[in-house]
């Protein structure tokens, strides 16, 4: 296959912190991103946390 036939879009399955980071970086680099999330909102497990280790920063 010729390189020029490649599709410039990406699908990311899972909208937790890692999927969101990948989505942002790809979108910022000029790719069209589909972010597919199983639940009703993105955020994943990190959004459930109160504070984070070791800085005690708010997780939200």
């Amino acid at each position: 296959m010729l390189d020029t036939q490649k599709v410039g879009s990406v699908m990311i399955v899972g909208g937790g912190i890692t999927g969101m980071q990948a989505a942002l970086d790809l979108a910022d680099s000029g790719y069209y991103v589909y972010l597919v999330e199983r639940s009703g909102a993105i955020g994943g497990a990190m959004a459930q946390l109160d504070k984070t280790f070791p800085t005690n920063d708010c997780s939200m």
Binding site: V7, V10, Y31, Y32
Partner: peptide, 24 residues
């Protein structure tokens, strides 16, 4: 996990580089 998110973006860009900007 955040690091790997950016890393996965880089790895994708490695294979799709010629198509960058094509759809955005």
């Amino acid at each position: 996990s955040v690091m790997e998110g950016s890393a996965a973006a880089a790895a994708v860009a490695d294979v799709l580089a010629p198509a960058r900007g094509q759809l955005s």
